[in-house]
Amino acid sequence: MNLDFSQIVPYIPFILEGIGATLKFVSVSIVIGFILGTLLALCKVTKVPVLKPFADAYTSIFRGTPLILQLMIIYYAVPQLTGYDISAFISAVLAFGLNSAAYISEIIRGGIQAVEKGQTEAAEALGIPYRPMMAHIILPQAFKNILPAMMNEFITLTKESALVSTIGYLDLMRRAQVVGSDLYRNFEPLLFAGLIYWVMVFILTQFGRLLERRLRQSD
């Protein structure tokens, strides 16, 4: 066994900076994915025509093609088509946000449809308009039920974020690779990066459990 972790010590600050880079674009992607996903889910359950086929087509496209392909198209094709030199960060946020919205919209749609029909009827019978009914009665119950699935999606997103290393964004993964080629030793930096990913996911999981427990107070 030829392992020597002491060699990566000088590179540790460089790798750790990748945590910030990764978290920055993952959190922005989650926000985009969540907001867009919620809107798409509302389109899917509405009776207004056109919106549903649009949302279904959107989901079909973003779930039906590889994420790395979407990332490449945004990063390489946008400059070719428009002449606008899109940054790696913006590309990453767009690709992950738009992609994740497709998955999140399906999760939320399922959550909305799982809320008992009587809840809608009770709200309607009270004369509560659609928006407050969705915002205060249906969605809070839907979100509570789908929290585990949602945490799953966020965890997947956090890990899949390593794909952005392919467009040169200096995230955790890319930095581990850079260190690897600098040292001609790959195992140590990759293992170190792996540990950091695991810790991030672990913290996210704990946070999810905490949230679940808080939402369960009405049970």
């Binding site: 009587g118 009770a122 309607e124 004369g127 308009p129 009405s218």
Partner: peptide, 22 residues
Amino acid sequence: NKLAVRKHIGMVFQHFHLFPHM
């Protein structure tokens, strides 16, 4: 407007349909 009508008519259901998160 249906909602305007329902303001004046209260309804009680067999299965209550209280809002469980409130």
